[in-house]
Amino acid sequence: MRRNKHGINPEIVRELVALMDEHGLSELEYGTSDWHARVARGNAGKAAKGDAQSAAEPTSSQSPAPPGAVTSPIVGVAFLSPEPGAPNFVNVGDTVKEGETLLLIEAMKTFNQIRAPKAGKVAQILITNGQAVEYGEVLVVLE
């Protein structure tokens, strides 16, 4: 994970701010099992990071996930195809069956198959091949 000299990953902060803009939120808290960050507008804003802190409890007002969003269960690297050069598992506009593999997230050499939780059409793919993804990040939106 890329972090600057303050121990902050500026990409995550930028992503969080972008999500707040997109969804009109004044505050966003987000994290994994070993860190979390809270970004807020106004004088309450601060970013926190620590081992003892657990992931933020999701609440509906803070959730950035739209309906049909498939989120990442793990911090890792996304792969849209089973091997380099192979066609993607799915493309925007494809109709998928429940349980169909959408993409892989690799962490510690474990490949996590992310599957369609329901049948539907792939409306958006929000990540690129080889991109680092965070816990809870929206990967694909089905409609």
Binding site: V70, P73, E98, K109, T110, F111, N112, R115, P117
Partner: peptide
Amino acid sequence: ILAESTMGKTQ
């Protein structure tokens, strides 16, 4: 070693 995990409906 090739480890492959499969997620369910709620990830």
